[in-house]
């Protein structure tokens, strides 16, 4: 990881967001819900990101909202990752109809459009808190990773050392825990990061269409109010630009971390493709100038 600048940049940016999630509510200059007389003001030294139609400080809303975003992303990521490991590894390890059944289950969840499913479930729930939203997202978005893990497990199962362990009569659980799982770490990590990204976008999307933690703030609720109060037609660009940029930055940070993991897993992707002015090219191996030979 250390000599992978992409992953490092992503991890640092991610760390900053997590830090804001923890200390954001204390750092925020205003209470995000408190109204003031500065109605719909553009950014100023008092209100860095401007104010809403009720005079609320948008900077504080975005800062305080970070916690909900990171919380939902992390909880949904953990739930989905645990489920995907359970279903994926089991489906890959078990032969016969049990494995096939679990694999079919994850394929079903994969092709059912996730967002509409999450919408109908969350809007039918008696109450929506950050936790229930995170759980619904986690419970519906494990299928992709389960599929990837199943394929990986299938190929690991045929490796010599696993066959040897099985021939030695080691218990299935021991083999899975000590021979298979350690080799899946990178894939599981990449799946976790991907799910966090999906969960964050889903939570924000839900909040944007009006399903969110009552009274709480996240970047999606900021955008919900901006949209419903016609921020666009009033030219209040500052109302929706900061929250959107925050999403894009967090998303980019997560993608960068995943690129790092991808390059670790698939060495062909490592871009040391042009160093010191020599372009690596398939089919025409570069020839160094005579002097350097």
């Amino acid at each position: 990881m250390r000599n992978n600048p992409k992953a490092l940049t992503g991890l640092v940016a991610l760390g900053v967001f997590v830090l804001f999630a923890v200390v954001g509510p204390w750092l925020a200059p205003f209470d995000p819900s408190t109204r003031s007389n500065d109605l719909l003001q553009p950014p100023s030294s008092a209100h860095w990101f401007g104010t809403t139609h009720l005079g609320q400080d948008i900077f504080s809303q975005v800062l305080v909202g970070t916690r909900s975003v990171i919380f939902v992303g992390a909880v949904a990521g953990v739930v989905a990752t645990v489920l995907s490991v359970l279903v994926g590894v089991t489906a890959g390890y078990l032969s016969g109809s049990a494995g096939e059944g679990l694999s079919a289950l994850s394929n079903v969840f994969l092709v059912i459009p996730a967002l509409p499913l999450i919408v109908i479930i969350t809007s039918s729930l008696p109450e929506t808190s950050n936790l229930t939203i995170a759980l619904v997202i986690g419970l519906t978005s494990w299928a992709w990773n389960a599929r990837v893990l199943r394929a990986q497990t299938l190929s690991l199962r045929r490796r010599d050392y696993v066959e040897a362990a099985r021939a030695n009569g080691e218990s299935t659980w021991r083999i899975i825990l000590f021979e298979i799982l350690p080799n899946l770490t990178a894939v599981i990590a990449s799946g976790f990061v991907g799910t966090v990204l999906f969960a964050v976008i889903s939570e924000i999307t839900l909040a944007f269409i009006g399903v969110s933690d009552a009274g709480g703030w996240n970047w999606g609720t900021v955008l919900y109010w901006a949209q419903s109060q016609q921020a666009l037609t009033q030219g209040a660009w500052w109302w929706f630009v900061p929250a959107g940029l925050a999403i894009a930055l967090l998303g980019t940070a997560l993608s960068l971390v995943n690129f790092g993991i991808d390059e670790y897993v698939n060495p062909r992707l490592r871009t040391r493709s042009s160093t010191r002015g020599v372009r690596m090219r398939v089919g025409f191996t570069p020839v160094l100038a005579k002097e350097t030979s």
């Binding site: 944007f208 955008l223 901006a226 630009v241 894009a248 930055l249 998303g251 980019t252 871009t271 372009r279």
Partner: peptide
């Protein structure tokens, strides 16, 4: 065209693909 100017498109597309569709619509 790996190893040419085309590589510089990657960070841009990464950033764009992390933006929710609806926010791009707002912009």
């Amino acid at each position: 065209r790996r190893g040419t100017w085309a590589d510089s498109l990657i960070p841009v597309t990464t950033f764009v693909s992390s933006i929710p569709y609806f926010w791009l619509g707002l912009v």
